[in-house]
Amino acid sequence: MIGDSTLHFIEYELQAIALAWMAMIYLIKIWQLATLKMPWDTAEQKGSTSRGILQSYGAIFMPWSMESSRTHFWRWLEFGTYHVGALVAIVNTFTYPFAPDFMAWPVRLVFAVLIAPSVLVGFLKLFQRITKPELRMISTPDDYFSLAAMQAFLFLAVMALLTNAPVWRMWYFLVTAFFLFYVPFSKISHYIYFFFARFIVGTRYGVKGVIPQGKA
């Protein structure tokens, strides 16, 4: 039996501490990156920097824009499904404790339906990482652990949403707190680097007029 005060601590105080930790680590990492020199293009522009950046950020939402998603539509769909699920599960860690009135059954059901497919995709990703030689070759313990931990996080999110039972909520928020402590150090932090990388790529190709460019 989970006491109300225990659950409250896990859902509020522990999350706040973990979030503060994550924010602090990210700020330090961003500061470290910002102190590195950046060889921006200073030549006369041939294209548009802003359009390049826009295209760079938008590329992942436009499966037709990259050959790697255009010719592997199902892989793109898996990618999208997985990340939509992860996003909803993260949003849920805020709405559950801070907007309890909003988290009525229909909303919880919608959230669970959005997250559940990502659990299945997660298993598929894990299976592919183990069975495909080209992925196995580049995989590290952090890759396997991050995938497995995400599976636990997503599965517990679904169970907490469907049952609203204190025990599932407790485990869901304990795993969430663990994630907030661990993620800034692991490969899962790619979502932070993504914004920097796409900006750099967009700027670089935008200046030169490489993107947005038509395909031949």
């Binding site: 470290q32 990156l33 910002a34 590195l36 020199k37 950046m38 060889p39 790697s68 998603s69 592997h72 892989r75 990618f79 990482r129 495909k132 080209e134 992925l135 580049i138 995989s139 590290t140 890759d143 692991s186 490969k187 899962i188 932090s189 790619h190 680097y193 993504f194 920097f196 990388a197 750099i200």
Partner: peptide, 19 residues
């Protein structure tokens, strides 16, 4: 080591294999 490399050479790559 510059910012472009600093971003690309740490945890940006998820080893997804799309490349």
């Amino acid at each position: 080591l510059n910012r472009m490399l600093g971003v690309s050479a740490t945890n940006l790559c998820t080893h997804c294999g799309w490349c």
